[in-house]
Design a protein around this nucleic acid. Structure first.
Length: 318
RNA sequence: CGCGGGGUAGAGCAGUUGGCAGCUCAUCAGGCUCAUAACCUGAAGGUCGUAGGUUCAAGUCCUUCCCCCGCAA
């Protein structure tokens, strides 16, 4: 194994497109593996934190560290002339955050490839990692695929599976997926450029699509069953966090588990609040709340929360 | 000066109109129980975020600064 027998890593001009943390670590691994990253395209910096300080997006930090030229067009759809000047041989994308127009895909002679956080054709779209958690999947993965004008619909070149454990939440699964994405691209890139990866079309009959999660979906609905609630808690944890309302204030649930399928109280009622657990009655079972946070307070385990909230039993969440 | 909540024992909280600093959990010692996330008894553990001011007296009232959290962007 090893790179460089046919392909010359140094001479292959790669433009990397990506924005968040999951993408930043993959970029860094490509750099450290010796690939010639001639440019980063990322979303614009956004104000972060309470004070609204403008902070570089994660991929940008990596690019700055290795002196890679950075491009942050407002709309790649309208503004991609700069890419022609860079004249890349290949574009690699991972969670860039904008739809990339055909005009961009046509620039590099080896085309544009994308790393997608699911086993396609399952979960095309914006939130594949969360979708796997919401649906309670045991396995998900990363797919290396051809970029086409249609979102996540191109030929698939390689996949890598990732197991989802009971302890995983969005934060941990994002890390796993990021790691797997890095492994996958490093394992596949040489073969791709050498034309050894034929790729297979996606089976359109198996396609499913997941949409971007809207802020209002962070408020859990007690219309959902306990399994579904559990999935949403995991999918939204730790950032931004799923919540219900307690005393008209946000009550975030960062970690939970399914306690049982009993119904002993009203939906939304705290039916158990002692050292043995903090149980929320759902319509078809009870959710054990393990890590919570009330608005304005810190995140804490349920025992600590109970210490300071002695009258929680029988209260109603909504 | 975007809006709001908060900093009190290791953790989470209470502290009324200023008047001896408390509760729950954890910890330690002892007891009870076939047993326990149970129960009983006792102990240790605090410059009440910082700096200044008012007062006979400040956790509490006024001012400075620091830090944490929720929202907004």
């Amino acid at each position: 194994m090893g790179y460089g027998k046919k392909m010359n890593k140094k001479s292959l001009r790669i433009v990397y497109m990506g924005t968040p943390e999951i993408s930043a670590s993959v970029l860094e691994r490509l750099v450290l593996a010796g690939f010639n990253i001639v440019g980063l395209v990322a979303q614009k910096d956004k104000p972060v934190g309470r004070k609204g300080i403008l902070e570089p997006v994660p991929t940008k930090k990596v690019a700055m560290k290795y002196d890679i030229p950075i491009f942050q067009p407002e709309k790649i759809r309208l503004d991609y002339e700069f890419l022609k000047e860079i004249n890349p041989d290949l574009i690699i994308t991972l969670a860039y955050g904008q739809i990339v127009p055909q005009g961009v895909l046509d620039i590099p002679r080896f085309g544009a490839i994308n790393l997608h956080g699911s086993l396609l054709p399952k979960y095309r779209g914006a939130s594949p990692i969360q979708a796997a958690l919401i649906n309670g999947d045991k396995v998900t993965g990363v797919t290396l695929m051809e970029m086409t004008a249609k979102m996540d619909a191109g030929r698939m070149y390689a996949k890598k599976e990732v197991e989802i454990s009971d302890n995983d939440n969005a934060t941990s699964l994002f890390e796993k997926i990021s790691l797997a994405a890095g492994d996958l691209i490093l394992d596949s890139l040489e073969d791709y450029v050498d034309g050894k990866l034929v790729g297979v079309e996606q089976d359109e009959s198996l396609v499913s699509v997941c949409h971007i999660i809207k802020p209002e979906q962070e408020k859990l609905s007690l219309m959902m069953g306990v399994k579904e609630l559990y999935g949403w808690v995991r999918a939204l944890s730790l950032e931004p966090g799923a919540y219900l309302l307690l005393d008209e204030e946000k009550f975030k649930i960062f970690k939970a588990s399914i306690a049982n399928y009993d119904v002993t109280g009203e939906v939304g009622q705290i039916v158990k609040a002692d050292k043995g657990g903090l149980y929320l009655q759902c319509k078809d079972g009870q959710l054990s709340l393990l890590e919570v946070q009330k608005q304005g307070k810190k995140r804490m385990d349920y025992k600590s929360f109970l210490n300071g909230s002695p009258n929680l039993l029988n209260q109603l969440l909504k």
